[in-house]
């Protein structure tokens, strides 16, 4: 059993020129553009739609580009599956009696959209880190219970990862080459034991949160502000959408 390195993954939360913008504006613009890009289905409109994601990618210079490009490269592992699989299963005229012409085009469009949408969401949302995402959700009216659950889960994941890693090592030491039913049983008991330990810890956490005045203490401290800069940023995204629509006509 191998626990993929959670601590090796630091997210993309680092300084960016986009940090000057309100978190709500970033989330709204990102989802607007991503949803718009998802609706595009031909090369001309996708070509026109690629301009803004490329500008966003390059906004923080070489270092910012490298960080997102690394993640995009990792994401593109799904492209291999798409290129191999979709042309084989998609209906339509065949090239070399095997690959569907429409399927090849479809896989090309999907990979293009995957990269565009992911780069927009990585740059505008994932780079904020969980704390700013949570404060954006607060500004957008997401209920306190859900935001508290999100922050507590983020905290618990890092808290429990250490214990989980220790248990994985223990199982590995006891049963080095476990596979099949035996591996399932070892894994199930390990998850069960972690659940029991975490349940004890949860009870103590509930008491501690109660002492601090309940979950209302999880409200964000940063006051949201919406200035002309945020309005201009939103306007830029709307103009871009209009431009892409005109280009595709």
């Amino acid at each position: 059993m191998i626990l993929s390195g959670l601590h090796a993954c630091t997210g993309l939360d680092c300084e960016s020129r986009l940090d000057a913008l309100d978190a709500r504006c970033r989330v709204l613009c990102a989802f607007f553009l991503a949803f718009f890009l998802a609706s595009l289905r031909d090369t001309v409109s996708l070509l026109a739609g690629s301009a803004l994601p490329l500008i966003l990618l390059c906004i923080d210079g070489k270092r910012g580009l490298e960080r997102v490009a690394g993640r995009l490269l990792y994401l593109n592992r799904v492209s291999v599956f798409v290129i191999l699989f979709l042309p084989l299963t998609y209906p339509g005229e065949r090239i070399f009696y095997l690959f569907s012409e429409k399927g090849l085009f479809m896989s090309f469009i999907i990979i293009w959209k995957l990269n565009l949408i992911s780069s927009v969401l990585l740059k505008l949302v994932a780079s904020m880190g969980m704390t700013r995402v949570s404060s954006a959700l607060e500004g957008l009216g997401v209920p306190l219970k859900l935001r508290s659950l999100l922050l507590l889960t983020t905290r618990c994941v890092f808290l429990l990862s250490e214990r989980f890693g220790t248990m994985c090592r223990a199982v590995d030491l006891r049963t080095r080459d476990a596979s099949g039913l035996f591996a399932c049983r070892a894994f199930a008991c390990m998850v069960g034991t972690t659940l029991i330990h975490s349940s004890d810890r949860a009870e103590r956490a509930v008491l501690a949160i109660g002492c601090r005045g309940g979950i209302s203490g999880f409200s964000g401290l940063a006051a949201p502000r919406w200035t002309w800069m945020e309005s201009s940023f939103c306007l830029l995204f709307i103009i871009n959408a209009a431009f892409v629509l005109m280009a595709s006509l």
Partner: peptide, 20 residues
């Protein structure tokens, strides 16, 4: 909420483990 978040994080971590 705390109980659900603990369960959620355990399953998040469990999904990172490779079982042979």
């Amino acid at each position: 909420i705390v109980r659900v978040s603990m369960a959620s994080s355990v399953f998040f971590l469990a999904s990172l483990v490779n079982v042979r």
